[in-house]
């Protein structure tokens, strides 16, 4: 399969390093502004939920974390697949950079979900909730990916083997997702008083969308930052990097 011509620039480490360095502060700035605005909207402007009161405000960090945790895994797998098929080292570098970020957002989704669960369900951890189970399994997928990478000494091999795991994982993600939903539909536990689609008003929804966007930008900011580090590590013996580090004494 042929790649479009512009794509080849993404194979050039100095170019991508420079691009990441130039874009990073902008994306980071946008992320911080959006998250600040979304937090203000979520905590102050949005009215309390008529059933859950103010505890529902956790939604403004919980849903964006969960969203980013899933998006990150898909991007990881796509990057890994690109790296595997076209032997693009930078795509592997991106996949490696995503794993710890994605895992931390998955953790965040679980942690905020647990805190939210206490006032809503009366318990921090509800084993019968499909979304909790799904996020937990997603966390295991991230950890498995990282553990597999860490086990290899040879970076090239680690890249290619973990890429296969990433693709196998992403193919399984929807299967796991639907199977836990199906599983839960047969376990109608009496303890859950799931609020059937609480009517979400516009002034509740807008901060949520802003937060999701803010978290997405934040994710890409982190990704660019980690990618830069990863590029430096992989390009140690090259001339452009030597010139770069000599120009900017640390």
């Amino acid at each position: 399969m042929k790649l479009p011509r512009w794509f080849h620039r993404f194979g050039s480490p100095p170019w991508v390093y420079g691009l990441a360095g130039a874009l990073g502060p902008w994306i980071g700035g946008i992320a911080i502004v959006l998250i600040a605005a979304g937090t203000f909207g979520g905590l102050v402007l949005a009215p309390p939920d008529y059933l859950q009161g103010d505890s529902f405000r956790i939604i403004y960090i919980h849903v964006p974390s969960a969203y980013v945790s899933m998006m990150a895994y898909v991007i990881l797998a796509v990057a890994a697949a690109i790296g595997f098929i076209w032997r693009l080292k930078l795509a592997h570098a991106a996949a490696v950079s995503i794993a710890p970020i994605g895992a931390s957002f998955t953790f965040l989704a679980l942690a905020t979900g647990a805190i939210w669960g206490k006032p809503t369900w009366g318990t921090f951890w509800q084993w019968t909730d499909p979304r909790i189970m799904f996020e937990l399994l997603l966390l295991f997928l991230y950890l498995g990916y990282m553990a597999l990478r860490a086990a290899f000494e040879d970076r090239d091999k680690a890249d290619r083997v973990s890429a296969i795991l990433g693709v196998v994982g992403v193919v399984n993600v929807p299967i796991i997702h639907y199977s836990v939903i199906w599983w839960n539909s047969l376990h109608q536990g009496p303890t859950i008083s799931r609020l059937d689609g609480p009517t979400i008003t516009t002034d509740m929804l807008v901060p949520l969308l802003v937060m999701i966007l803010g978290f997405t930008f934040f994710f890409f900011w982190l990704l660019l930052s980690r990618l830069q580090g990863e590029i430096v590590e992989r390009e140690q013996a090259t001339r452009w990097l030597r010139e770069l580090v000599e120009e900017s004494p640390g």
Partner: peptide, 29 residues
């Protein structure tokens, strides 16, 4: 995935078990 590792045994479970969850769900049900 772990065939070229000297001690892959400890890690395989970590990779395989989460992927087995759908099978476990349907089998037990």
């Amino acid at each position: 995935l772990t065939v070229s590792l000297k001690s892959g045994g400890s890690i395989i479970g970590l990779l395989v078990l989460p992927l087995c969850s759908p099978m476990l769900i349907f089998g037990t049900r």
